[in-house]
Every structure is written in C-alpha cells, then in structure tokens.
C-alpha cells in the first residue's frame, strides 16, 4: 500500500510537466493553440482585458479547486492575489531581480495560506466564509496603515519584468506571460485532481467521516489544496504588479474575492475548464456592458450598476438553476 502510493507520488510529480499520461486531451491542446493566437488579433485596450482575464482565471482555477474539492466557500481569495502582488512589488522595489520577485509571489502566498489555514480550515460553511472575509479585511486594513507598504497610496513605479535581459514592456508580452501562467496553473491543477490527493478529496466531498475512516488525511489534503489555490492567486498577483506597475490596497477589494466566487460558481466548481470559462465569460460580458455603458449619453454610474447586476444575476441564476455550473452540466448532457 505505502510502496504503491510512494510510486504513485513519484509518477505524480514527474508527470506534472509531461503529457505522457492520458490526461491531456486533444481539445485542451487545440484550445490552447487557438487562444494563443488571440492576443495577436486584439487592439491595445482589449489586450489589457485579456491580461486581466487571464489573471482572474489563474486565481479562479485555484478557488474552484478549493470550493469544488475541499467543499469550502472562501470569500478571501483576493487576499492571496494581494499578498502575491505586494510580495513581487516590494521585492522588485528593493532591487531583487524581477524574475525572482515574481517567483516569490506564489511561494509567499502559499506559505501565508498554510499559516492561516491550520486554524481556520477547521471551520465549515458560513464560518469559513466569514473567517476568510475577515482575514481579507484585516489584510487590507494592515496594508492601508503600513508605511512599508506605501499605506493607502500603495506601491508605485515598479519596474517591468525582465527575464534574462529581455524586458517585458509591451502588453503583448504580458498577454503571453499570462497565457503561460494559466497553462501552468491548469496543468498543476489537472495533475492534482488526478492524484491520490484529488481522489481523497473527492471522497471527502461525498462524506467527511467516511473519508476519514478510510484513512484519507483529510486535514493535510485540505491544507494542501488551500495552499496550492493561494499560490495560483499569488502568481496572478505577482504578474499583475509588473503589468500595471503600481499597487494599492484598493486594487484588491472584497468585491474581487466575490467576483472570483461568481466566476468559479458560474463555470462549475471543481472543473478547471469551468474556471477558465467562468472567468472568460464574466470578464467578456462585463467588458461588453462597460463599453456599452460608457457610450455618450449614458449616466456615469451605468458601468458599475451594470457590472454589479451581471455578477449578481449570473451568480443567483446559476446557483439556483444550473447548480453544477456550466461546464460540468454541458459535459454531462453531451
């Protein structure tokens, strides 16, 4: 039993980056190829949307994993985006090589998640929802008061990311960086779901006591998923800091966490494809409505009213009428 699972673990880690296993389906490759052509066709403003979409998608893949496999509602996923962003930003401003600063983002976010996860992952349902929300509010308040983090103004004048002397200073560069990030995150999530951890957590979702009784280390797996999901958000935050060049506590409001939840739920919890679709669908719809709402003659409040309404109505409609989310529902019916 132990020997077998050890072997499985070796296979798990060695196969993370290989496509040798049956897991990678052809439509994933086709989809990735098609999407990778998209940035070339976009106008500059649309490229920004594309990058932000990709960053959301990374955080949402993590959140979807957490909510779908660990069965927990987190209203604080944007905390880890913020932690990643501030990690990269602070390190880069203190003369750390940008690539190193970027790599530190997911690591610090995961460590932070592991730290708070030990006490709070014992909570369930609404308790965890409020606890994660409280942690984000505390983080924002601390960042807003901290001189070392620039207070409410935040960090400004961040350098561009540079990799081996090549400076990423165009939106197109970041579009491909984000694309790579989304691919990496999806791949890791895919492998994690297929691993012993994923199977254990699926058992967990169907019944905690049963899973515990059958020897699944419930607490450790849940903490692992929490940390991994935080790392994804942290990486997104790191890229975000280099892409925009400035950060403030206001860039990561509670509403961002709620947006992530909406995207994850709409796409389908526990589904990587669902997370990507949810992020894409909502970003595009909100972007279209914002374009519409900023036409001359529209009142100044129209964009925010429309985007709030879209988040709210999509969330409610999907939760009530497509409870599994779009992608799992489509997959089942086909």
């Amino acid at each position: 039993m132990t020997e077998r699972s050890e072997r499985h673990d070796r296979v798990f880690w060695s196969s993370l980056f290989s496509s040798r296993q049956d897991g990678i389906r052809w439509w994933w490759i086709a989809g990735a190829l098609i999407v990778s052509a998209v940035p070339l066709l976009l106008a500059p403003g649309q490229l920004t949307t594309f990058v932000l979409l990709g960053l959301s998608a990374m955080a949402v893949v993590g959140l979807s994993l957490l909510m779908g496999y660990a069965g927990q509602v987190s209203l604080g996923q944007a905390s880890f985006t913020a932690i990643g962003a501030y990690t990269s930003g602070l390190l880069a401003l203190h003369h750390t090589p940008p690539l190193l600063a970027l790599l530190a983002a997911p690591i610090v976010a995961a460590l932070a998640a592991a730290g708070v996860g030990v006490p709070i992952l014992r909570l369930r349902g609404h308790q965890l929802a409020f606890a994660t929300l409280a942690l984000q509010l505390i983080l924002l308040s601390v960042l807003g008061d901290a001189d070392w983090a620039g207070g409410a103004v935040g960090l400004q004048g961040l350098p561009y990311l540079s990799i081996g002397g090549f400076e990423l200073d165009a939106d197109l560069d970041y579009a491909y960086l984000v694309l790579a990030g989304v691919l990496l995150v999806s791949l890791i999530a895919h492998r994690l779901v297929r691993s012993r951890v994923g199977r254990g957590l699926r058992a967990l979702a169907t019944g905690e006591t049963a899973a515990e009784a059958s020897g699944v280390p419930v607490g450790a797996y849940r903490l692992l998923v929490f940390a991994v999901s935080a790392a994804f958000a942290g990486l997104a935050g790191g890229i975000y800091s280099f892409f925009l060049g400035y950060l403030a506590p206001g860039s990561f409001p509670v509403l961002l966490s709620i947006e992530y939840v909406v995207m994850a739920v709409v796409g389908g919890l526990g589904s990587i494809g669902g997370a990507l679709l949810g992020a894409a669908l909502i970003t595009v719809v909100v972007q279209l409505l914002t374009t519409l709402a900023t036409q001359p003659g529209m009142p100044s409040y129209a964009p925010s009213v429309l985007s709030y309404a879209v988040y709210a109505l999509l969330l409610i409609a999907v939760v009530l009428f497509v409870p599994k989310g779009i992608v799992p529902t489509l997959r089942r019916s086909s």
Binding site: S304, V305, L306, Y308, A309, A312, L313, I316, V319
Partner: peptide
Amino acid sequence: GLGVLAYA
C-alpha cells in the same frame, strides 16, 4: 448575490 445586486 443579492448583496451584490443591492449595490446595483
């Protein structure tokens, strides 16, 4: 969702 709808 209803809380967000209230914002709108």
